[in-house]
């Protein structure tokens, strides 16, 4: 027993990782300060029209927040974003699982999925407008189309890469096909799926803005167009910063999910 203890990884490693991450947070704040500083310095020769200082953007941010304009636009954008993204998760994961689980089905569809994935999605926007109009329906479809493929492909690859030995082991214990699916293929694909979700989320944010600019102007896209076209540059930075914040928030929360999903992997023994 005493010798066995020595053979497992020492526990303190977890705490060490925690310490290191605190350090990273501090460094990130310093880096942010430096970026804002550089931005401010660059804004002095550039002038308020070309590049307003962050000190000029901040009051505009507060003003737009107070007037309710920013919140309404953000709410509208988030509605489009999450509707399209949820739809992409639902369809991407289900189809990916089916393709990975049923070999001939996956092999048949694979080439079409990759064809769609490598075609610029903007090319489909006129068609989508033709079919779905300029309203929220068209926007959700655009977001869905932008985000669905990385989710689908990652899920497919994840299910496909399931260790064959584990499947055979489960079968040797008498597992039915449905149990192999649920207990072996799905958990084994989970880290891949979450990675797909993260890539998909980043694309969904892009898709949302593209949709808002290419169809009826709404949400943060509307603010971008409004302030951009009227050269209110300080105000223009407000929706830009908001999009940055949304993207970061989504990506960070999915990163946390990714760590949890892969916590059984030897390379990520941190909490």
């Amino acid at each position: 027993m005493g010798t066995d203890r020595a053979q497992v990884l020492p526990a303190p490693r977890v705490r060490a990782a925690g310490h290191r991450r605190l350090g990273v947070t501090a460094w990130r704040l310093i880096a942010l300060g430096m970026i804002l500083g550089a931005w401010h310095v660059a804004s002095i020769p550039a002038g308020a029209l070309l590049l307003p200082s962050p000190l000029a953007v901040a009051p505009q941010f507060v003003a737009l927040l107070r007037s309710g304009e920013l919140l309404a636009a953000t709410a509208s954008s988030l509605t489009v974003l999450f509707s399209g993204y949820s739809l992409a998760i639902l369809t991407g994961v289900s189809l990916g699982v089916l393709m990975g689980g049923i070999r001939p089905f996956g092999e048949t569809l694979e080439i079409f999925v990759h064809a769609m994935n490598s075609t610029p999605r903007v090319a489909f926007i006129p068609l989508i407008v033709l079919w779905f109009g300029l309203g929220i329906k068209a926007k959700v479809v655009i977001v869905w189309l932008t985000a669905v493929f990385p989710i689908l492909i990652n899920t497919y690859v994840g299910v496909q890469n399931t260790d064959w030995g584990l499947i055979e082991a489960a079968r040797s214990f008498g597992a039915r096909q449905s149990q192999v699916f649920r207990h072996i293929m799905l958990p084994s694909a989970l880290p891949y799926v979450v990675t797909g979700l993260r890539i998909g989320a980043a694309l969904a944010v892009i898709g949302t803005v593209v949709a808002e600019l290419y169809t009826a102007l709404t949400g943060l896209g509307h603010l971008l167009a409004l302030f951009g076209n009227t050269f209110q540059t300080a105000k223009y930075f407000v929706p830009v910063v908001t999009l940055l914040l949304i993207g970061t928030a989504i990506s960070e929360s999915l990163k946390a999910l990714e760590r949890r999903a892969a916590r059984w992997k030897s390379t990520t023994v941190e909490f």
Partner: peptide, 26 residues
């Protein structure tokens, strides 16, 4: 029962949950 050369434990399950697995299947 089958015991394999490469162990074939489910890496996402703890020791307890691995040993429980066939019983869960049943």
């Amino acid at each position: 029962g089958f015991v394999f050369q490469s162990y074939r434990l489910l890496p996402w399950r703890t020791v307890l949950d691995n040993v429980r697995f066939p019983l869960e299947i049943q």
